[in-house]
């Protein structure tokens, strides 16, 4: 199980580790963290789902809200998605709007090279 919403800062990017179950409560916590990092001036946020087993539809709606909020101010990418979570994001059409990487390292590398990708 992932450690609850720990994060790792690297330059202007930050990796946020999502919880095991993303519902309304955990989704809102993620949202608060992302808001705080944007406030601090981070340009890219990698949300790492490698410790996430389940994302429910309310969690999905909060993630859509996070992406909407960051739009124009920075970039957000996902990493470490389990197959079922990728499928969930695909069904709701999120994968058309966001880059998804196998792991956080790839996400950091890519996000470093794609500065300014706005959503």
């Amino acid at each position: 199980m992932a450690v609850r919403h720990k994060h790792r800062e690297t330059g202007t990017s930050v990796v946020v580790y999502a919880d095991n179950y993303i519902n309304d409560i955990e989704g809102e916590k993620l949202e608060e963290m992302c808001d705080a990092f944007l406030e601090k001036g981070f340009k890219k946020i990698v949300i790492d789902f490698s410790g996430t087993d389940l994302v429910n539809s309310i969690g999905v709606s909060i993630l859509i809200g996070i992406i909407e909020k960051i739009k124009g101010k920075g970039a957000v990418v996902f990493s470490g998605l389990k197959d079922v979570n990728f499928q969930i994001f695909h069904i709701v059409g999120l994968t058309r709007h966001i880059r998804v990487y196998d792991n956080e390292e790839d996400a950091l590398k890519e996000s470093a090279s794609c500065d300014g990708v706005s959503l």
């Binding site: 539809s57 709606s61 069904i91 709701v92």
Partner: peptide, 18 residues
């Protein structure tokens, strides 16, 4: 297509897709 997906009302579509 260019807009972000709507926020609510995905429950049934997720069930059907899964």
């Amino acid at each position: 297509e260019t807009d972000l997906p709507r926020k609510r009302g995905w429950g049934f579509e997720l069930m059907k897709g899964l």
